[in-house]
Computed example of a mutant assay.
Amino acid sequence: MSRAAIVGASGYIGGELLRLLLGHPEVEVAAATSTRLAGKRVDGVHPNLRSLTDLVFIPPERLDQYDVLFLAVPHKESMGRLAHYAQLAKLLVDLTGDFRLADPEVFERYYGVPHSAPDQLGTFVRGLPESHREELRGADRISVPGCMATAAILAVWPLAVDGLITGEVSVDARTGSSGSGTSAVQGNLHAERSGVLRVYAPYGHRHEAEISQATGMPVRMTATGIDAVRGVQVLCRVRLADGVDERAVRACYQRHYTDEPFVRVVAQRRGHYRLPEPKILVGSNFCDVGFAVDGSRALLVGALDNLVKGGAGGAVQAMNVRQGWPERLGLEFPGLHPV
């Protein structure tokens, strides 16, 4: 049994980590930290966990030694405390953006501050088993991609690595309000968020750099907040290489994803759910990818639950690979329909 601790456990991602790990047969959740809520019960903040745990939040300075440490702190925080965290556990799983990008200059451009540990950027393995499974088996530091980045990478990466697309990738991403975390600034209050289709990042969203780095393609991305709590959907517009048709696109996806436990190819000609739809993925660790081809151009679609496959579930999946456990362990929930 591996002892795990979650740093920053009072947020939405922290809550999802608790939900998943409390039901994981190979993990004991030994600690959950929160500076603001230290001494209070975990299920007071995450009421869905009532009767499942008697855990109480502890302050970060009371952390002990663990087998795995999940970092669910705000962006720009884990890089400054990496040396400290590394002393507490052999395996670090970071869910912040701090170690997702390999180039410190790119990091500074997208995050607005210099990286405080640039020499450590190359020590983290991307927590995306679909593209980095073998590297994860021996990794002691894992960086989980962002939610919209995960959906877009899984939609674009197979065609990019097989040379089936060319030119710039245009990513139109839509995300629910939980992606903003628990800090309710005015724009995320219900009165302001309800009913919106708010383009909050017309260009330059930080996930743009992640997608480009992972696929090797130039990327331009917009992000829109939608009237949903959970869910991400990305529409990726690409130009097909010469001679590539719909059959080749489908064959590429099948070649890469037929044996993947958490990626499903959804590209049907009719039906209500003929392309990936985040609504039916709520609570699940699946990412559905699909496509539509129009001559020399294609629309690649990815959808997932931003808090699960786009966050906590992706972290648990990567941990399972690292520990040599079955990849689906603790992640079997299929989603709900209707919702």
Rank of each mutant, 00 (worst) to 15 (best):
S131R: 14
Y85G: 07
R100K: 15
G11Q: 07
A9N: 04
K40E: 15
V68T: 14
R62M: 13
H132F: 14
L52D: 10
E16H: 15
D64C: 10
G11A: 13
S131N: 09
L63G: 10
Q65C: 07
D103E: 08
H75A: 14
F107V: 08
P104M: 05
E16L: 08
A72F: 04
E130F: 03
F57M: 06
G112L: 09
V56I: 06
A32N: 10
H84D: 13
L95W: 05
G23W: 00
E61A: 10
P60H: 13
G80D: 10
E135P: 04
G44D: 14
P25I: 05
D43C: 14
A117V: 11
V73A: 07
A89Q: 12
V93K: 01
P59S: 06
D98E: 08
V106Q: 10
G44T: 12
E16T: 13
R50K: 15
A72N: 12
L128C: 02
Q65Y: 07
G15I: 12
G44F: 03
L37D: 13
F99Y: 15
R41N: 03
Y85F: 14
R36K: 15
L63A: 09
L88F: 09
P129A: 04
S78R: 09
P25C: 04
L21H: 03
G127A: 01
V56W: 00
H46D: 12
G39R: 04
L55G: 04
S10E: 13
F107W: 11
Y12W: 04
V68A: 10
V125S: 04
D103C: 08
P47C: 11
R62D: 15
